[in-house]
Design a protein around this nucleic acid. Structure first.
Lengths: 344, 344
DNA sequence: TGCGAATTCGGGAACGGTTTCGGGAACGGT
DNA sequence: ACCGTTCCCGAAACCGTTCCCGAATTCGCA
């Protein structure tokens, strides 16, 4: 049984004034006498009144709530990004509702519908790997709900975007493998419908060609962004007649799967195979050998996305031009890629 | 600019009927003619009308939302438990709002206040390690918002509780270390104000005494449930004149910190020190050597907590007796504790 | 034919706030 | 004495929906 909360009407009754007066007194309006204000505020506090946000939402058609869709909150990259969003949101009086797409397009669609129904004020999203059609985000925007993408952004949707320089990160990672003497460098890419996958792939390719190394199709395979995919692809790569001596994985989760597979197969890292991942999850440094990785500022990405979204929400009339903020990644070199330089 | 959603009133205007009629037609009331129903439903669909849940909430004083407070969503144990909660909640038409206490009492307090203000229908919570006073949960219940605890339960608060058999899990883990020939078994306990910490400590103690092993105070230290604490305590334990040859850590996060410290210090696991953790996080199996751990059914715990809470919410009048569901834990033995049996 | 009972629908209150409008009283100035 | 301000406050509309209460029309049956 839900106990009735005390309302403005109840205060008005006890003080024998109108509810308008109570409302104004609590909002410290100038057209209420100091004395009445004091009486109202005192009673409100003693009754420990708190205004009903639902009534406010109905009135203003605003919920003071941000939606956020990520593929998986158990992924540390996303959970810390969510932390960044919450950090900003709380400080500006908003709350966040967290949705998981579980890398499913259908689920993502259902989430956006729910967000529209729930009248959330805005959405921050990192799209699922199975999403090819982005119309549901456009629809949301047409309903007046602004959308900001982070990490896995939609290229076809005009909006604010926050991402890291995937191309540059991948380029540097690959260049690092080259500089450590790797000759046969493979890449395990992410799903091709995500722009981050394509950019990281391009970074890998350009680094090789720029160093005069021939691209070989058999050394580029694709995987979901998870551990099982990494393991599977590693088995596939190491079974090649021309096996790689360096692997750049498009994510740490993939790299962890590779790491596991290489140990299973008896390869030594970095001597037999040098390995680099992407994201620098905190667990990556705990592996043996510790994993080299391209670090992304996940918390800051969440903060920035939230800031952009809130500005969009609160600047009613002025639809400033959409911008894409590109944060810098940072290659963290650990033992998994520190192959001895024999030749040099 | 938020576009006005189409309302029941708009449909009524276009069809020249009253809004009551529209409302009833959409709810398939028997007192509306089939023909009118059809007209209303058709127009509603073509306008792609969806009812405003905020208005409903105001009317019913129900939000169809569950609150959930965990110390940290980046902890895989909690994020999978949240997955279990969502699984049940979605299927019963509820949404979940996720809060993080960050192991802070003040933050937990602020979260419960926000939950009360937001008129959430019920709360699922695993309390923070710094929480000693549980009055805020009682207050919530007095306001008619039911509370269900999981994992880190409150002993002083009457309510449904879902937990694993911490005592038995700890007992078995310790007994396992004994059976592998460990003579000097230390325990890194969690914060003493959490019942799980105390129960796991008791399991450790009882296993030792039951096998005629003397308890030594210096071998029981306490730590926060995180990696840094584990590392610190491991340094402390290994510095003892009488250093342990087996360590049972109260959580995997602590155990991972110990794991790291032991490798830093040059100890071999399990030969020099055998190690067992608690929770069986997925990363634990990736460590080298893989970590033995007491597995908890985290997803099922979330499901069960949600089921109990929803039953509580929807059974208006009948306040059935509160129950504590104790799920069984499961010792997973891996290399970190598989010390060779020399003597036997 | 007349009358009670269905059938079908509209009016309005209610949920808990904010806000527009207006009005009474006090007050000051001429 | 009269009028214009200013200060305080109340009445009522409004947000979107449900639901209670009537009410009009039709229908069935005696």
């Amino acid at each position: 049984m839900r106990k009735a909360s005390i309302t403005i009407k109840e205060i008005a009754r006890q003080l024998d004034v109108s509810k308008s007066t109570v409302s104004r007194a609590l909002r410290d309006s100038s057209e209420i006498s100091e004395e009445t204000k004091k009486r109202v505020i005192e009673l409100a506090e003693s009754l420990n009144y708190s205004p009903n946000p639902i009534a406010l939402s109905l009135l203003r058609n605003r919920t003071q709530t941000l939606g956020i869709i990520v593929p998986d909150i158990a992924n540390p990259f996303f959970s810390t990004a969510i932390g960044g969003v919450e950090d900003i949101a709380y400080s500006r009086g908003y709350h966040t509702m967290i949705y998981q797409s579980h890398e499913s397009y259908e689920r993502e669609l259902a989430d956006t519908r729910h967000i529209a129904m729930r009248r959330v004020d805005g959405l921050i999203v990192s799209i699922s790997s199975q999403t090819e059609n982005h119309d549901h985000f456009i629809e949301l925007q047409e309903q007046g709900i602004p959308v900001v993408f982070f990490d896995r952004v939609s290229e076809s949707t005009p909006s604010h975007k926050v991402r890291v320089d995937d191309y540059k990160g991948a380029f540097e990672a690959t260049e690092h493998l080259i500089s450590r003497g790797c000759k046969n460098i493979a890449h395990i890419a992410g799903p091709a419908n995500l722009s981050i996958s394509r950019n990281r792939l391009r970074g890998y390719q350009d680094a090789l060609t720029q160093h005069g190394i021939e691209l070989r199709d058999e050394w580029v395979v694709s995987s979901e962004y998870n551990q099982a995919g990494g393991t599977e692809r590693a088995y596939q790569l190491m079974a090649l007649r021309n096996r790689p001596d360096g692997i750049f994985a498009a994510s740490d989760r993939i790299a962890i799967g590779v790491h596991w597979a290489l140990r299973q197969l008896g390869y030594r890292m970095p001597d037999d195979v040098a390995l680099v991942g992407f994201s620098d999850l905190s667990i990556s440094s705990l592996l043996d050998p510790p994993l080299s990785s391209v670090a992304q500022p996940s918390f800051e990405m969440g903060q920035l996305a939230a800031t952009l979204l809130l500005d969009l929400i609160e600047s009613k009339g002025t639809p400033a031009a959409f911008e894409t903020r590109v944060l810098t990644s940072n290659l963290i070199i650990r033992k998994s890629s520190m192959k001895d330089l024999v030749g040099n």
